[in-house]
Design a binder for these strands. Sequence first.
DNA 1: CCTGAAAATATCCTATAGGATTGTCCTGAC
DNA 2: GTCAGGACAATCCTATAGGATATTTTCAGG
Lengths: 239, 239
Amino acid sequence: MPEPTYPLGKTVVIERKGLRDRVYDLVLDMLVGQAVAPGTRLSIDAIARDLKVSPTPVREALVQLERTGLVTREPLKGYRVAPQITDGQLESLFDTRIVLEGGAASLAARHADSLVPRLEATLEEHRAVTEKVQEAARAGTLSVALLREYFTVDWNFHHLIFEGTDNPFLIDMSEVISTRVHRMRQTVLSGVTDAGDAVTEHTRIIDAFRTGDPEAAAAAMRDHIEKVRSRSRSDAHAH
Amino acid sequence: MPEPTYPLGKTVVIERKGLRDRVYDLVLDMLVGQAVAPGTRLSIDAIARDLKVSPTPVREALVQLERTGLVTREPLKGYRVAPQITDGQLESLFDTRIVLEGGAASLAARHADSLVPRLEATLEEHRAVTEKVQEAARAGTLSVALLREYFTVDWNFHHLIFEGTDNPFLIDMSEVISTRVHRMRQTVLSGVTDAGDAVTEHTRIIDAFRTGDPEAAAAAMRDHIEKVRSRSRSDAHAH
DNA sequence: CCTGAAAATATCCTATAGGATTGTCCTGAC
DNA sequence: GTCAGGACAATCCTATAGGATATTTTCAGG
């Protein structure tokens, strides 16, 4: 006898998470959200007291966070917010992005047909938010919330391409890149000068996808990231 | 007053690890060592009883292992050995390797001078072990230990190139690849047919590094991995 | 013999307690 | 004033206990 089907529309899968996962989400939001000084101690007991939970789930959440590179651990000494990224590491991060995202673009070109419309939709959001940012910048009322929104839609474009590869390993690695990039933007505080450039470069990437040539898509992506790198350098120098 | 320097020769850094890290190492060795059936339950309490420790450090070790993809977790249900890799995932894994290792070879070519000698040394080991494997295969006395030794020296070559990039992010990602590749070889049990081919292909990679051309190194690496992929396919088909 | 529900067992998850280690502060000697 | 040594506090780490959830077993009814 088949069980009755309930007309729930889209069946929303209820995520059954334990305390550990909720603590993880909270601490992660705190790290990528408000800027917290690198090197700050993350006391297990203190966090537990703050969140009104026992230290046990907090410990497990921090173990999980350690793998993302956002926090570092010294045995018997505790956890700290990962130190500020050095110039050398920043270059390494861009090198890695060029390798990873260039390759992802090449692979995603296989499914360009279904990918391009989604990229266009995201680009439209990106364009809209960019206008709001530029407007606010002229008026001198550039809020942190708006900046965060801008970073999010910007990254959404890159993330879509990773998902377009349909490759679980690459998608997994994109998460690692994502946290590092977001954290970098917090501290370096760049990304305002390139408000317009990013949109036009993303447009070129979509154009490359439309040709269906994987190498063209990869080249457009590499070119974009190289330009982000050079803009980032001049920002740092202007500091 | 400078503190006295102790003539300890090479100062061995004593790793201060807690119980958690030792449990992690033990379980990891068990997973990549002896073949354990995918889907096997990893009971926290059972492992704790086996190792004569409390469940707490075991839980944290498993949280850490979850990030490597070797084990999966279902909240409130427990941990399991990650399921057998599917054919589609295997293709994705090779795609990722081509992207990642091709890019790594390109970047490592910057330091080709210091890298080539180390690659040659590892290749020599690889060649020696290969002969032992072929000999044993002819005699019909191919032990698991010898096979594991072969896989190790084979991977050492690839790992050296990652280290040659001097890029912490790429090196980190190579670890993820490493565990997956080792686990795949356990189950697929390939790698015997290509005993000779791998050495010659590695030789060609070194030759490419000698030219100093990053693109040549990347191409040689991509070519090698593509060949490993096709050999893997025919092995699976022969099964 | 098979089906389905209820009890029993095993397991996961969180909380609490205590030992071990590290960092800090204070005192006293040179 | 500077440095060494010791006591105190804070923190990490492991162990144990108990509630909550999942799984297995048992058993009654068809």
